[in-house]
Simulated scan of single mutants.
Amino acid sequence: MIPLNRQHDHANSTDEVMKKAVRRLLEYDGSTTYLLQDLLNCRLDIRVSHQRQITQSEVKPEILKLIMPNENDIYIERYSNLITIEHVAVSSNYVLFKTDLESVYLIEKLSRDSYPIGRVLEQESMSHVREPIGYGQAITDAFGEESICFYKNYLIRLRNNSCLYIHEEFHPMVFDREENHNADI
């Protein structure tokens, strides 16, 4: 039998491990998909619910400031989910891709609805820089019902002046313990 204070210590260390996992996911500057696959120990695929080309005037002003627009830019907006093999969404994503006419091959690849952006960058060996913008918790209905979810925002800048703005919300099941939904991050 484990003494009560020993169990309490174990609970605290488990909480600390979960807080570190939350922080790692939110601050991670590599492929979130690969990190989620590691954390959940399963393969994830992308399900695109909506993708379209939009005009600069349709881009939120706070995002425009971040992506440094040019006169001839093309904008592609994408809403998607990372899903398990059982079709359970573990993250909800909004992506805005800004590029120019010289990058037609990128537009073509990203216009295929189910082509993951990270995979395009990897397969094309495109040098890029990820810039974290922020993270936190918010109330959202991205997963079918209102819940408190962790989110993160970041940019991916490519050497050809293309840029991706990404807002990703994580399903509460990723951090399945109730006390971690309100973790002090």
Rank of each mutant, 00 (worst) to 15 (best):
M1E: 14
M1T: 15
M1R: 13
P3H: 04
P3Q: 02
N5S: 15
R6I: 15
R6N: 14
D9H: 14
D9F: 13
H10G: 05
H10Q: 13
N12F: 05
S13V: 01
S13E: 09
D15I: 01
V17D: 00
K20V: 03
V22M: 05
V22T: 09
R24T: 14
L25G: 03
L25I: 03
E27Y: 05
E27S: 15
Y28T: 10
D29C: 04
G30Q: 14
S31D: 00
S31R: 00
S31G: 00
S31V: 00
S31F: 00
Q37C: 12
L39D: 09
L40T: 06
L40Y: 06
N41V: 03
C42W: 01
C42N: 09
R47Q: 10
V48T: 15
V48L: 07
S49Q: 09
H50K: 14
Q51A: 11
R52W: 01
I54G: 03
I54P: 02
Q56T: 01
E58A: 10
K60N: 08
P61G: 09
I63W: 05
I63S: 07
L64A: 13
M68N: 14
P69F: 02
E71V: 12
D73H: 08
D73F: 07
D73A: 05
I74A: 12
R78H: 08
S80T: 07
S80G: 06
S80I: 04
N81C: 11
L82C: 03
I83E: 11
I83P: 02
T84F: 04
T84N: 04
T84E: 05
T84G: 06
T84H: 04
E86Y: 11
A89W: 02
S91I: 07
S91F: 04
S92C: 13
N93K: 06
L96D: 05
K98C: 07
T99V: 05
T99C: 14
L101K: 06
E102R: 04
S103Y: 00
V104I: 11
L106K: 09
I107C: 11
E108T: 02
E108V: 02
S111M: 14
S114Q: 14
S114R: 02
I117L: 15
R119I: 13
Q123G: 07
E124S: 11
S127G: 11
H128S: 15
R130T: 14
E131S: 11
I133T: 05
I133W: 04
G136N: 06
Q137G: 01
A138E: 15
A138K: 15
I139G: 01
T140Y: 02
D141C: 05
A142D: 09
A142F: 03
A142M: 03
E146Y: 04
S147K: 11
S147N: 10
C149E: 04
Y151D: 09
Y151H: 12
K152S: 09
Y154M: 05
L155H: 09
L155K: 11
I156D: 06
I156E: 05
L158H: 08
R159F: 10
R159Q: 15
N160T: 13
N161A: 11
S162H: 06
S162C: 12
L164K: 07
I166A: 08
H167N: 13
H167W: 02
E169K: 08
E169V: 04
E169L: 12
F170C: 01
F170W: 00
H171D: 07
M173F: 12
M173N: 13
F175D: 07
D176T: 10
D176Q: 14
R177L: 08
E178L: 13
N180F: 06
N180Q: 08
H181I: 06
